[in-house]
């Protein structure tokens, strides 16, 4: 099977034929179609941590999760706190949107959680006494 001509066995055996060899293009050169050296900029809006010429504009920051995300972006990438705060903000945002969409259900879940907590504390308290 492996020397199967139909599957093109070995046609790219020669590293010269592989588009990603060498890993870094030598000499460096712009991609076809990139006629700029510094690409023109999208109107500066609320990009993010820094301003890049192009950026996405979906889902702007809002509410509590927005505050946490802003805090997260104050920490650089190599600090764990940056990523942990982002993950926390993700959960907060989802919880918030569930509360807004289905207040009754969210209330029921909260009640069960609080009830459970009280029960656990009650059991522990009884054990201690």
């Amino acid at each position: 099977m492996h020397h199967d001509e139909a599957m093109g066995w070995g046609v790219d055996r020669d590293p010269q034929r592989r588009p990603g060899v060498p890993a870094e293009q030598e000499p460096p050169r712009p991609a076809a179609g990139a006629v700029w050296t510094e690409p023109p900029s999208q109107p500066a809006g609320r990009a993010g941590r820094r301003q890049t010429p192009v950026y996405g504009t979906g889902q702007p920051l809002h509410g509590v999760s927005g505050v946490v995300r802003r805090l997260a972006y104050r920490a650089p990438d190599h600090q764990v706190r940056h990523w942990m705060l982002l993950l926390l903000a993700d959960r907060l945002e989802v919880a918030g949107s569930r509360v807004r969409e289905e207040p009754a259900r969210a209330l029921a879940v909260a009640a069960v959680l609080v009830g459970g907590l009280l029960l656990v504390r009650g059991v522990r308290g009884r054990r201690r006494s």
Binding site: Q25, P28, T52, P53
Partner: peptide
């Protein structure tokens, strides 16, 4: 962007001009 330090080296997945975050 096709033209930054990384794009010029073919590292289009690592472009410097498209992610502010």
């Amino acid at each position: 962007c096709g033209a930054c330090f990384f794009c010029q080296r073919g590292l289009l997945a690592n472009c410097d001009n498209v992610n502010p975050n």
